[in-house]
Design a protein around this nucleic acid. Structure first.
Lengths: 246, 246
DNA sequence: GGTTTTATTCGACAATTGTCGAAAGAGCGT
DNA sequence: ACGCTCTTTCGACAATTGTCGAATAAAACC
């Protein structure tokens, strides 16, 4: 397979992922905005490419139209990918690992993407967690629940980053931990910082001081909770539904 | 991960795949129809579930509306999955392997899905192929180009079916073959019959008589072509664009 | 503070969608 | 031939979308 064919395949799969997510979203405008920001493209550039007024893009993203047509969604998705391609395709390429990842990896319990972000305080509330380190607060676009021991034993550095799903701006939740030190070590060596780390299985005051120290240095929000893992996942999955009701 | 969570994950991923494909399609109505037929659900059942008139579904599928809104697409996708779930989820389950498949497998050169079918005669014309065996003609919803030797050496029976992408009603194109016998043998032992088999690298009169015989017995259309493989893939990928122009 | 860039709001209006319901067609079983 | 199931067509109309362009706001830069 030529390189161009491989790139075309990735682009096609990414287009489907994007279009699917936008179409299924309760707020398609927000989902459109998420992807445009992911690609680091200004509204003015996007509207210029599509030959429409800049306000057209803003109107869609702001939710003025509750049910945009498939045609405009398709046009915007294609435009984002084309603009990125014309810039060298680095954003598309950065999703390569995600598109080819095996989500059935034994280390991963659950993974979920949000189209609109969750705040750290909300996360802490939902999963009844102690905040061990506040860190630099980022919006969280998803979460991954990981079996801590399996992840560390089985995943190479390259594979470790697959835990990040579509965005590093997500909560990594490590379960079956004893003190919480190993996950922070693993994160340090991969040099990819998640939006937050949750140590599951112990309370905040049981977290190893070295773990807290590493979180402070790397400015990563660190939480600890003993909530039942299945219940935790259920609550986090329902987050998108809560958002609509609020 | 509980079984219900695993099922929920598959369903979510399938929903995205479906919604993405429909949204990106030049003819979303045809794509909607394809998925409804894949799920073996009547328009009357779907409209009943959605509490709309049966003509609503027919109007959409027939293309009366060129750019349906994301809301109706989302509703239809959710309804298809929910109706299948209430019947035991066998259609959703049947896609499990496809969702978790690793499309980067070395044996696969290219794979592509169509939302509307190609006829066998059209395929033969596009790739300048000799028809070795007519077989029972089926609409073709995609193609997979396979390195014949690698596929046979590296793929187990279980993995072999991953070549089928989203539908067995596709053309399997085997390249780097000498006589064409091995691919037909491999297909026989997996007991999954593709919509068509293409032997790439030899002309029709060079195909091993045993291969032709097996194709006749299994009633599988068998073609042979010496077209350049990259050009062949390019032509087949462009098929969706041709369809629109016609 | 001024300028530039980027984004948002909103009135307006032509075009299209979402949907109903009536009528008709096709296929199948009796 | 008749009845049933499934699908399609299409007129109609209220509701919504697609988009422009003007005005305004916010952020970034100098």
């Amino acid at each position: 397979m030529t390189k161009d064919m491989a790139n075309e395949n990735i682009r096609q799969r990414l287009a489907e992922k994007m279009a699917g997510e936008i179409t299924l979203s309760e707020k398609p405008g927000e989902a459109l905005k998420k992807w445009r920001l992911n690609f680091d493209i200004a509204q003015t550039d996007l509207s210029g490419y599509l030959k429409v007024s800049p306000s057209v893009i803003s109107d869609y993203e702001s939710g003025r139209r509750k049910s945009p047509g498939t045609l405009i969604v398709s046009k915007i998705v294609d435009a984002l990918l084309e603009i990125d391609t014309s810039k060298g395709g680095q954003k598309i390429h950065s999703y390569e690992g995600m598109l080819y990842a095996n989500p059935g990896a034994k280390a991963v319990y659950a993974t979920y993407e949000y189209t609109y972000p969750m705040q750290l305080a909300k996360l802490a509330t939902l999963i009844e967690a102690d905040v061990v380190n506040k860190g630099v607060e980022k919006p969280l676009y998803g979460f991954t629940v990981v079996d801590s021991k399996k992840a560390i034993l089985e995943l190479s550095s390259h594979e470790f980053q697959k835990l990040y799903g579509w965005s590093t701006e997500r909560a990594l939740i490590f379960t079956k931990v004893s003190t919480g030190k190993s996950p922070l070590v693993a994160i340090r060596v991969t040099n990819l910082k998640p939006g937050a780390v949750v140590i599951h299985g112990i309370r905040g005051n049981q977290v190893d001081p070295m773990a807290k120290k590493m979180a402070e240095i790397d400015r990563i929000p660190l939480l600890a909770t003993t909530m039942d893992i299945d219940e935790l996942v259920e609550v986090l999955k329902k987050y998108s539904q809560y958002h609509v009701i609020e």
